[in-house]
Design a protein around this nucleic acid. Structure first.
Lengths: 227, 227
DNA sequence: TAGATTGTTAATCGATTAACAATC
DNA sequence: TAGATTGTTAATCGATTAACAATC
């Protein structure tokens, strides 16, 4: 070993999905701590307490971003924010098309936060004649018939699916044929895609089931408590 | 042991959350198989193949609903659908209030599927004067100032939060004070609640991160493949 | 220095997967 | 009957949690 620290590369360690999902939560928290209270250094203990995550979990999660802390002091908030953004690739924006400019699609188009997460929705597509040609939240609405050509021309890799259930599979097929590699599916329909295509399905039924089961359990326990 | 099978009760076995999230997926699939192809019996192998879940996983998941299959034949589709609905409590509806009648709120109000999942959104609340007093998707819009009283009067237990980030915590507090026990949080803000209150946070940043990381990995692998 | 906190290695826990006997 | 599929028990895997030495 020389004095120069050799950064060992090794095979890319797999990132646990739960960790990945928590990183944006830490990021939001850190941003808030910085803005509201101008905190410079922070410990896993404090993060954990505030977010109701066990501190050791926080440490493990942050480790994956290669952030280093100082014993006794904690992590530099600025550095941590930066490391998370770097790790998540929020510093280089990628572009996406959104198909289905209904209420849900409009809501997503109107959510400016995505830009901070490295995502920019460049255009929307819809079959409704009254919407085609207009702008929604500053983005042009094109007919779905233009989708394939535009995906190819602009080299778009991500598609956001906000169409009704019955149209979901067909639009997904079109997206894939055009060259889209990742689909963010907000439709209530599971879609079939070829191997190698990534689908992230926001399944509200699944989420609702988790919430209602927990709720049912709480209410049952409350009842038992009064007996 | 008599001839009568004694159904052993035992302590309620904990339900793995991943299983819970998959049950609605099976349900949707089964409904589709029934409707489109009139399938009467189905095996875990087939379900697994179609949904790209390993068959043994499917079996384990279905086991929790107490559904029983016939060796060689598989499960009765009708019975399975019924058992899942029963297990998830989709046969008795519960009511919810929605706060924030923007595009996202409107989208949720317009999604009729919730009724099949045992959820009915009875009313919406908003501070926008142009919305208050109108109907959206057939539901009356009330001012937020009426929320507390109406939650109490109607004994509502679930709140759906579709307000902008900066209003989220305040509305959540109001909900909790009024007696809401479960909050379905669609705002991009993590909310603090007292112990015992259930929060299901639809965190789009988390989902996006998972999708983009996977996408980045695929694109990287594709690149390596061409070299 | 003393002690809080990080970094790292080991133990635990829970979900997934495998193995195999029972059965229609 | 033969064989596919269920039901059930065991093994594996990965994420979480614990333990403890290193360090500022």
């Amino acid at each position: 070993m020389t004095e120069l620290e050799i950064k060992k590369e090794g095979p890319p360690k797999p990132i646990p999905e739960p960790t990945l999902r928590r990183l944006p939560v830490y990021h939001q928290y850190l941003k808030k701590m910085k803005a509201e209270r101008n905190v410079d250094f922070i410990s896993c203990t404090q993060i954990g307490n505030d977010l109701k995550i066990v501190p050791i979990q926080v440490r493990k999660d942050l480790e994956i971003t290669d952030a280093v802390g100082k014993p006794k002091l904690g992590y530099s908030v600025d550095e941590l924010i930066h490391m998370i953004e770097d790790f998540l690739g929020w510093n280089n924006t990628s572009e996406a098309f959104l198909v289905g400019a209904g209420n849900l699609g409009t809501a997503l188009l109107g959510y400016n936060g995505f830009r901070n997460y490295g995502l920019y929705i460049v255009a929307a597509f819809d079959n409704n004649e009254r919407k085609v040609g207009t702008q929604i939240e500053g983005r042009q609405v094109f007919p779905v018939s233009k989708l394939t050509e535009m995906v190819r021309r602009m080299n778009i890799r991500m598609g956001i699916l906000t169409v009704p259930a019955q149209a979901a599979q067909e639009i997904a097929d079109t997206m894939v044929r055009a060259g889209i590699l990742g689909i963010w599916n907000f439709s209530p329909m599971k879609i079939d895609v070829p191997a190698g295509i990534i689908v992230q399905h926001e399944n509200l039924a699944s989420s609702l089931v988790v919430l209602s089961k927990k709720l049912a359990l709480t209410m049952q326990q409350n009842l038992e408590g009064t007996r």
